[in-house]
Amino acid sequence: MNARLRGVIGAASVALALALIGSVVAYQPAGAGPLVNHDGVNHDNHPAAPDAHQAAAIEGQAGIQAASEFRANCRASHRSGNDPIIYPNQTGVSHVHEFFGNRSTNASSTYTSLKAAGTTCDPVVDLSAYWVPTLYKNGQPVAPESVTVYYQGIHDMQRAVAHPPNLRYVVGNSRATSPDQNPSARWSCTTQSPSSRDFMNCPAGTKLETYLDFPTCWNGRDLDSANHKDHIVFWAGSCPSTHPVVLPRLEFLITYPVNGGGLSLGGTVNGVNVTNAPGYTYHGDFINAWDQPELERRVRDCVNAGRICGTNGNPI
């Protein structure tokens, strides 16, 4: 699929995703009681299914083309069972994630530690931490072939402001028990337009790819929240009065050098970390550690100005 083409979930792809549910082991329902593993770690603090209003906003945003943007091209850095947003200072507690951007990201990462480290991204002024669950094919981990992180103007772009330093949030539902519980999950195949919330069985000559869109309406106050999502919500015709500050849309476009079947994700089943989670549990995390003046310049000169810019923050 062309890098700028956004597929929409068709009836056939949804049917395929639903057909796959029967082959998946039972997952802890989203919104159910505390999810505690054998080490006594509470896994209930990861964002669960969105409400109906936010689910509709997520679905609607998937079809919105960017009117302006700048980008960072990143490489995979490392993988580990850490998550500094969900399980800060708890090394090895999380299911396995694939990290890109900041090279130092671990369970104990702070804004200060991220700012002192290096990055796999172009431009090097983007020291942000980005991560998603690790992809597996036939039980073996697969690193992304390419990662593009877009910062896009999709609505009210003249009013958009730069993400504040150390802003962090999570999108997606790692505890989904069916595709309809995670409208953020969006899988497709290169050179093709259909998409699905569960894995696509991409034909020979294509590669698996995924888009992950982040919300754009911030409450203007909190850098995080108890469930790591309530301080930022998805735009639904406008930003609500509770979340009036417009941010550029953060979007991951990740391509993996695989096709066919045998695919799974790092995840958590009944309190135990596994590597066979289904595609509809896909999610992503972000901590802003950009050089703030450079981020603000890009928002002003690209997003606010209605221009498409490259990694150097200049119009293409």
Rank of each mutant, 00 (worst) to 15 (best):
V149W: 05
S108M: 07
V96A: 06
H95W: 14
N312L: 12
R307V: 11
T120G: 05
Q192R: 13
T120A: 03
W131N: 08
D291F: 09
N89C: 04
H38T: 14
D126G: 10
P293F: 02
G33S: 14
C217T: 05
Y151S: 06
S238V: 13
I154D: 14
S174H: 09
G220I: 07
T216L: 01
P183L: 03
I21R: 01
S238M: 10
N201W: 06
A67I: 09
A32V: 07
G237T: 11
R168P: 02
G237F: 05
T119S: 15
A236Y: 12
V246H: 03
Y151H: 14
P50L: 00
H163D: 04
D39V: 09
N219Q: 07
D291H: 10
A17C: 00
G40K: 10
R79Q: 09
Y280T: 06
Q292G: 08
C189Q: 01
Y151K: 03
E209M: 07
P278V: 12
P278L: 13
V25W: 03
P165T: 12
D222R: 06
G260W: 09
R186E: 12
T91S: 15
L265F: 14
F286H: 07
E59A: 13
L253G: 02
D83C: 04
A66Q: 04
F286D: 04
L212N: 01
V269F: 14
W235S: 15
S178D: 03
T134L: 04
N82L: 02
P34F: 09
Y211V: 11
M200V: 05
V142N: 00
S104V: 10
G40L: 12
L263A: 03
S193M: 04
I232T: 06
T112N: 15
L265T: 01
P248E: 03
A67G: 15
G261E: 09
I316G: 13
A12L: 11
L5A: 13
D285K: 03
S238C: 05
A277T: 11
F286Q: 07
E296G: 10
A76K: 00
V246G: 01
N276W: 13
N102Y: 08
A305F: 03
P50Q: 00
P144A: 11
R249M: 13
T120I: 10
Q61R: 11
L212S: 01
H155D: 14
V125Y: 07
Q54V: 07
F100D: 00
V96L: 14
A117M: 08
P240Q: 13
V171E: 00
H95N: 10
Y282L: 11
A11D: 13
S174I: 12
S113D: 15
M200I: 08
R159D: 09
N37I: 09
W218H: 11
R103A: 15
C189V: 00
R159S: 13
Q158W: 08
A12R: 04
Y256I: 06
E294I: 05
K137N: 04
G261Q: 10
E69S: 14
N82E: 14
N89I: 10
N304S: 11
P203H: 02
M157A: 12
G220A: 06
D122Y: 15
P164G: 09
N173M: 00
A12N: 08
Y211R: 01
V246E: 08
P34S: 13
A62N: 08
D126L: 05
P203N: 03
